[in-house]
Each structure stands twice: as C-alpha cells, then as structure tokens.
C-alpha cells in the first residue's frame, strides 16, 4: 500500500481580488491579481523541497496557503492526508511554520516567556517543551533576556525554536536566512541540515541560489505563480538553470 504524502497540493490557484471602487461598481469584476496558477506537487515524509524564485513569484503565498493562513481560490491541499480546508486546526500539530519575521514576538518579554506563551498555545507545558529546543538551538544563555535586546541572528533562532516547540514533522520556512550576517546565515544553514538529518519534511522558499546549493533534496523554480520542478543536468550550473527558467528561454513553465 502506498504511503500517504506528508504534503500534497493539487491544482492550487490563488487570486487576490483587486479592491478598487471602480471594480465594485463594475458588472463583471476582474479576477484579481494571480499569485499562484494550478500548482501541484506531492512531498513524501522526510523529503525536502526548495522553492526558488524571484520576488513576487508566489513563493510566500504558497507557503501561507499550506499553513492555512490564506484560503485558496481553487485547488486543495492535504497535510498528512488531511484536507486543510476541512481540518485546519488539527493539521497544525504536524506543521511548523517558521515565519522568518523576527519581529513577530513580544519585545518586552524574555525569550523564555515568549517561547512559553507559544508552547501553551500548542497545549504544551513550557517546562517540557522549551528546554529541548533551546538546547538544540543553543539559546539557553539568552532565555532570560528581553527579546528586544537580541541581535537579528538570535531572534531568527528564536523564530526557528518557536516553529519546533511542538516537534512538528513538516517544516515550512520562508526565506530563512534573509537579513542575517554571514556567520548567522551559516548557523541557520547548519541547523537546517541537522533538521534534515532528523528526517523532517521541509519546504523552504528562497530567492537565494546559494541557499539551495547548500540543501539536499528536490528543487523547484517558481515563476509568475507557476511551479516547475527542475534537476540541473550534468555540468549545468544551478545559476544557468535558474536564469533559463526565470527568463523563460527553454525550461520555463508552460
């Protein structure tokens, strides 16, 4: 019997309606701005998918749709076999969404207090949930300091720690190394490699080629809302392949 994919996406499209007065008055409203066009893929447990694409290509929209922060215009998403439209609360136990927005914490509270708050939202006892992730992410020396006093790199580590509190089997990462200095970038990459080694299923979206080069797993390129899985041919550099797909000469999605 074939096993259930960790994440399955079928015919997913997302249009953002245009909210302008003239559209309200029009008899036939335009469909809106298209962010995703009929995206489909399946990801088995333990697999990784790096999605590369220029700004505005729909990467963040895709990851937010999987995290149920957006509703699709068309298509369906299943997480561990459950339809996200029907069971959006229960599938969140499987998902760790790492927002990569280091400001999405409470600056006046300490790192421990922040992580304890989010642990409780996952129905976990903070004393059980926080120490293991703090140890893995080497955050123990920072737990008692106020969040606003941390560097961007430490804040990003807290962001990753928050996504790991409930030990999810699927991780969604949106530009995990953006705004980080080279050392912090390297630390985050090592951590992602470590999580890969633990068998986590990961979807990482990025517009940085070097990010993808460091990761093992499947690669897809997104352009104007369409997703195309690619595999560099022997001797072909990732940069060349990316340029070909994004500039639309040959490999571009239909």
């Amino acid at each position: 019997m074939a096993s259930t994919p960790a994440v399955a996406v079928a015919g997913l499209s997302k249009y953002f309606p245009q909210l302008e007065l003239r559209h309200f008055l029009a008899l036939r409203r335009p469909p809106g701005v298209c962010a995703l066009r009929e995206v489909s893929f399946e990801l088995m447990a333990g697999e990784n998918l790096c999605i590369l694409g220029p700004n505005g290509s729909g990467k963040t929209t895709l990851i937010k749709l999987i995290a149920t922060l957006l509703t699709p215009t068309q298509g369906r998403i299943w997480v561990q076999g459950q339809d996200t439209g029907a069971a959006s609360l229960s599938i969140k136990r499987h998902l760790g969404f790492i927002t990569c927005n280091e400001e999405s914490f409470y600056g006046r509270l300490t790192g421990w207090q922040n992580l304890a708050f989010f642990a409780r939202l996952h129905n976990l006892n903070p004393k059980d949930a926080v120490p293991p992730v703090a140890r893995v992410l080497k955050l123990e020396p920072y737990l008692d300091r106020r969040f606003f006093s941390y560097s961007t790199g430490i804040k990003r580590r807290f962001d990753i720690a928050r996504g790991l509190l409930h030990q999810p089997d699927i991780l969604l990462l949106d530009e995990p190394t953006t705004n980080l200095d080279p050392i912090a970038t390297q630390e985050v990459r090592q951590l992602l490699a470590q999580l890969q080694g633990q068998g986590k299923t990961m979807i990482i979206v990025t517009h940085r080629l070097e990010e993808v080069q460091k990761m093992r797993g499947r690669l897809a390129i997104m352009k104007e809302g369409r997703l195309q899985e690619v595999q560099p041919a022997a001797g072909e550099s990732l940069e060349d392949l990316y340029r070909q797909v994004v500039q639309g000469d040959g490999h571009g999605p239909a």
Binding site: A67, T68, L69, L89, S90, K92, R93, L95, F97, T99, N101, E103, S104, F105, Y106, F118, L121, H122, N123, R162, H166
Partner: peptide, 14 residues
C-alpha cells in the same frame, strides 16, 4: 502589524 497574529494562527488555536 507585528506579525504575532500569524504566529498565533499557525498554532492549533482558532
């Protein structure tokens, strides 16, 4: 505006 709302919404909390 801080992004905490999205961070809360990805937990199993309606």
């Amino acid at each position: 505006y801080s992004g905490t709302l999205e961070a809360m919404l990805v937990t199993p909390t309606s």
